[in-house]
């Protein structure tokens, strides 16, 4: 669990405790967001818009695929190889949960302040 949001000693039930380490990482969150919005997205689009190197993006995709949050399909269009990423139902749920927890966290911080 990577609960380094900057809030002191989160107690039980605190939104930070529910953050998923796989999802709560800006690049991986970006991949899930784009895949959710686009229905399916090509490797090159992700690399350009998340400003990641191919190797770095591949590592993040591998983490998400292993967690069952995305599906990766490789194919060809003409001679050009293309890799398409699709969000799984578990991925959509994980993204929705993450966004809900972020909103809770913001609300909690604002209440504390």
């Amino acid at each position: 669990m990577t609960a380094t949001i900057g809030t002191p000693d989160p107690g039980p039930g605190h939104p930070v405790t529910g953050l998923d380490e796989v999802v709560h990482q800006r690049a991986r969150l970006g991949i899930l967001t784009i895949a959710h919005e686009a229905h399916r997205v090509e490797f090159g689009y992700l690399r350009t818009h998340l400003e990641l190197t191919a190797g770095n993006l591949s590592k993040h995709l591998s983490v998400l695929e292993t967690a069952g949050l995305i599906e990766i399909q490789k194919g060809y269009e003409g001679r050009r190889g293309r890799t398409w990423i699709t969000l799984t139902a578990a991925g959509a749920t994980a993204l929705a949960d993450e966004i809900a927890r972020l909103k809770q966290l913001i609300a909690r911080v604002e209440t504390t302040n």
Partner: peptide, 30 residues
């Protein structure tokens, strides 16, 4: 946006803002 520059525990407001702008960009591109 590299992995090194985006510590896992980023500002939640900024994370949400990034999510929204990415989603908006996708919609524009579609």
């Amino acid at each position: 946006m590299t992995t090194e520059s985006i510590a896992a525990g980023g500002d939640p407001r900024r994370l949400l803002s990034d999510i929204r702008s990415l989603a908006h960009q996708v919609r524009l591109d579609q």
